[in-house]
């Protein structure tokens, strides 16, 4: 299902090509130079939950290569290892096995260099809820060594672009809707100009309007910033719309990896199914994401 953006942003970050000159190629299609934005080789991670319990395998021998400028989607059911993968790349977990590099920097040995290149937006907007967006973003700016005056201007500009006016910037974040909080989280990540942006289910739980706003903004980022984006999502339409390549995780393993078009063609050719990402997911994991969401709802409802 294709989704249309229902409203135009007041201002745009997209810089149009000068008249008479060819439009620049999307970053994902430009010639490659330098090391990949993200390289995972044979990465594994398991968690020990107790002496008598079997360790839980979260990530099992995953290898991925994300080129600079790509939006790389990671699709998977709940518990498939998507967030663990993001945490491993974010230096929040250590690797049990394998190697992870960001722009040629080893995640374990060059942790500080890696931290300067990345930022992450998680499914929960992680803020001091009593503080205002400006106070939270000022804290982030100082942590990342940004000039406070420039950070203040940039904060206002990004939040304005995301539809959050100057008036809201001084109010506690707890007074904002979840959609607005998530936009502030995205603004905080962008403020630090990460070269690798990790979006961990950024639209999960958002209302349709907020979801579309965030998706439009991610598209705009691709067009205007030299940023690589790794996006985990439950939303097939979102993955189809935004991602240059997609990896499907199941039980901590990558069970399929290709462009969205490549995956759909494969499922039609090899499984005789209609070429949709839902069928790709069903074919490679043996279940649909709807089942997963239903189970999740049942667990929540007791």
């Amino acid at each position: 299902m294709s989704v249309a953006v229902t409203h135009e942003p007041k201002t745009s970050l997209v810089v149009p090509a000068p008249v008479g000159e060819p439009a620049p190629l999307p970053l994902a299609l430009r010639p490659l130079a330098g090391p990949p934005a993200l390289l995972l080789e044979d990465v594994s991670k398991r968690f020990v939950l107790g002496r008598k319990k079997k360790p839980v395998v979260a990530i099992e021998r995953v290898s991925l290569r994300v080129e600079r400028g790509q939006i790389y989607g990671v699709l998977g059911a709940n518990g498939s290892g998507k967030s663990t993968l993001i945490r491993l790349v974010s230096t929040l977990l250590t690797l049990d096995r394998g190697r992870a590099e960001i722009f040629g920097h080893d995640v374990e040995r060059e942790e500080m260099a890696v931290k300067r290149l990345i930022n992450r937006v998680s499914v929960d907007a992680a803020f001091f809820k009593k503080l205002s967006p400006y106070e939270n973003l000022a804290f982030a700016a100082r942590l990342y060594g940004l000039d406070p005056a420039i950070a203040r201007r940039e904060t206002a500009r990004i939040l304005e672009r995301l539809g959050i006016g100057e008036r809201r910037m001084g109010q506690p974040i707890e007074q904002m809707s979840r959609g607005m909080q998530q936009k502030v989280a995205i603004a905080r990540a962008l403020l630090t100009s990460p070269t690798l942006l990790l979006l961990d289910e950024p639209t999960t739980g958002l209302d349709p309007r907020s979801k579309l706003d965030v998706q439009a903004f991610v598209e705009e980022l691709r067009a205007t910033h030299d940023a690589t984006i790794v996006l985990t999502t439950h939303d097939m339409a979102e993955a189809d719309r935004l991602c240059d390549r997609i990896a499907i995780l199941d039980g901590g393993r990558v069970v399929a990896e290709d462009t969205p078009a490549g995956l759909k063609a494969r499922v039609a050719r090899e499984h005789g199914l209609a070429p949709t990402l839902d069928n790709v997911f069903l074919a490679y994991t043996g279940r649909s994401l709807d089942e997963d969401v239903d189970e999740d709802d049942q667990e929540k409802n007791g």
Binding site: L92, D124, A126, A140
Partner: peptide
Amino acid sequence: GTLEYTMMAP
């Protein structure tokens, strides 16, 4: 809920 964000800052 900000611990991870602070710990991944440079």
